[in-house]
Simulated scan of single mutants.
Amino acid sequence: MVTRYGYGAPCHTIRVMEAAHPVPDAAGLAAAQALKSAVSGLGPDDLVIALICGGGSSLLPDPPEGLTLTDLQELNAALLESGAPISVMNAIRKRFSGINGGRLAELAGGARICNLIVSDVPGDDPGAVASGPTVPGRPAAAEVAALIEARGLALPQACMDHLRQQPEDGAAPHPDVTTRIIASAAQSLEAAACRASAEGVTPWVLSDRIEGEAREVALVHAALARQAATAGTPYPAPVVLLSGGETTVTLRHRGKGGRNSAFQLSLALALEGEPWFHALAADTDGIDGSEDNAGAWVDGTTAARIRAAGLDPLQSLQRDDSYSALKAVNGLFMTGPTGTNVNDFRAILIGTPRG
């Protein structure tokens, strides 16, 4: 088992390895080699049970011939700062790995493979979760080159050179693979909706696959929340607006804060002064990007309280420093490791406006 630092747990028979996330390190390199060794020499009479959740793209770096760990670190850093959706990032990562894109399954010598997947990707494509180490299929080099060009991504020169020189895969083995999604964002929203109904609050589930710039997605949520509060459509208050998926933040400055913190600060500004809403946005694994919070709480007073604490909330958002602004008003949501990862969870509780 491979997980991020601080997320390991004592096990009697399972070896637990820890490595860096979201930018890989040498411990991840060793973990990838350990997994490759574990499946080598297996045959048709063997069964591999693969428990996969998000994060494996970074936790299992395995640079192909001609590339180094440093190259993969620079690649991951560039992708994380690009604002590209996770599906695009993981499609690209598959071309720079000796383990992802089904390659680990191909190394298993014809062994039967059972994938049990906790999905953290919009749409629940099993091959996109952790870049699919045991799920057959990967894009051709030409497809990846087209993705990079279409989005204007600035990736390390060594990686681009490798991609141009990379021959297309030959006919890959067809391993015996069974795949099941055992947890997902849709299931988390369904559970939240059931709980809201039990409390007498109408649930309004938008989607489990929302993507886009966090601050812009927040503005859409703010508009829908205001519509429900003031016009009672599509549901009258009290109502809770629920959504999931994975937003992104295109980094322009070196502030602190992940996508959920950025979403919340943008929402707090858009609905400043409104007494009828309270909101939570968090990454279900307990870590919002690279910080120590899962996400944040905001309400109609958050922006004013940030100013009272001596910070400008709009400037903090523009400088990609939502973490510092929300920390100043005790707005950070801290859970520690949760033991799961079905991506982002957002809930906006909408009451009836006074007056």
Rank of each mutant, 00 (worst) to 15 (best):
E168T: 07
A214L: 05
P175K: 03
A183P: 00
S184G: 09
P173S: 04
V205W: 08
V177G: 03
R215T: 10
T179Q: 08
A186L: 05
G200N: 07
G212Y: 01
A196I: 01
A172P: 11
H174I: 06
S184P: 08
A198E: 14
V217I: 04
A214G: 04
R215C: 09
L189K: 00
R209S: 15
A171Y: 02
P167G: 09
G200V: 05
E213T: 01
A192F: 05
T202E: 05
V201N: 06
D169R: 13
V217F: 00
A198I: 07
P167S: 11
A214P: 02
I181R: 09
Q187E: 15
G170T: 00
W204S: 12
R215L: 02
R209F: 07
Q187G: 15
L206N: 10
C194P: 00
E216H: 11
D176G: 05
A185E: 00
A172S: 11
S184Y: 01
D169P: 15
A198D: 13
S197R: 14
S197A: 15
P175E: 01
P173V: 03
P175F: 02
H174G: 06
R209D: 12
A185R: 00
G200E: 06
A185S: 15
R180Y: 13
A218Q: 00
G212C: 04
A192H: 04
E199M: 14
L189S: 01
A172M: 12
A191E: 12
D176E: 12
S207E: 10
P203E: 05
T202D: 01
G170Y: 02
E216W: 03
P175S: 05
S197V: 04
A192K: 03
C194N: 11
S207M: 04
P173N: 07
A214S: 14
L189N: 00
I210E: 05
A193N: 10
S188R: 12
W204Q: 10
G170P: 03
V217E: 00
R209H: 13
L206I: 15
A186D: 13
I181A: 04
S207I: 07
A186K: 13
E213C: 02
T178K: 11
L189V: 10
R209T: 14
S207V: 08
A214F: 01
E190Q: 14
P173D: 08
V201A: 05
Q187F: 08
P167I: 01
D169L: 13
V201Q: 07
P175Q: 04
Q187M: 14
P167F: 01
A198R: 12
D169W: 06
A196H: 03
A196W: 01
W204A: 13
